[in-house]
Amino acid sequence: MSGALLEVRGLTKHFGGGAHPVRAVEDVSFAIQPGEVLGLVGESGSGKSTIGRLILRLLDPTAGSVRFGGDEIATAPERKLKALRRRAQMVFQDPFASLNPRLRVRDIIGEALDAHGLARGRRTERIGELMETVGLPAAHMTRYPHEFSGGQRQRIGIARALAVEPELIVADEPVSALDVSVQAQVLNLMQDLRARFGLAMLFISHDLDVVELMCDRIAVLYLGRVMEIGPAEIVTARPRHPYTQALLAASPKADPDAPKLSRTLKGDIPSPMAPPSGCVFRTRCPYAMPACAEVVPPLRDAGDGRAYACILDSLPSRPEVA
């Protein structure tokens, strides 16, 4: 795929050495086109947040390649990363902890400008612009973070990321700490900004409804590996991988007439320090067979723009419901 803004190949991250490192990310590949939003969905231990940090080189990958606009990021020396940080930015989950409580909003946003020598001579003006872009009054720039609500703080975090005019934003669970009514405000803001600035995003979330709303394509992760990746509406409407199916079935629908959650998945998520052999999902998969323990299933093209990692050619129509 040429022309991709971001191209990730065989990305792998292990934490800690020794015989049993934490295998947070294993051989993950995907690409993001300019202006495209890719969702990463998964439960704890899926490695979704780690991937976001590897792409911004906040963590160093164990193996694999990350190409941003053609430049290799994974092995770039520290001094070359500053250019990356003008082009790719991050929005964090926790709107409280991601803003330094001792700095005024002016300095929180201004720091991004200063770090890259932007808006010299019109710093205050530019900070005001950025605040209004995210729907905050410019006059509030002299306040401290604790004077804002959670949703407003998340807006400040977004303004900080926008300050360098990035092409890609990695949004790590940007609304999961917010109340539903406030979450909706922030989601709409992010959609507006995406359209207005042509932003590409890597949107990390555990909430399938949010991901479906925000994303063009979705990658479903389990224990550091991609289980299924493809267009958002296809993956959520007709999940192909047993894990995607289970994840959808387990997500509560805000509809009392929807079928009650079927307990398709038994047991716990295995430890990423000792992932199962072969397919990592096989210990909880309702269709698992002996062959699943043998090989790591490669991603197969399903023909409808989606790929999935399962050795079964087709799934029985309905998994056994407990």
Partner: peptide
Amino acid sequence: ALLDCLPARAARGADGRRVVRSIPGT
């Protein structure tokens, strides 16, 4: 309003984008 804020209930706007209803303020 709260029920309309749910992402699953997002409606497609005139420009084809799906928008969730939100409640202004806090």
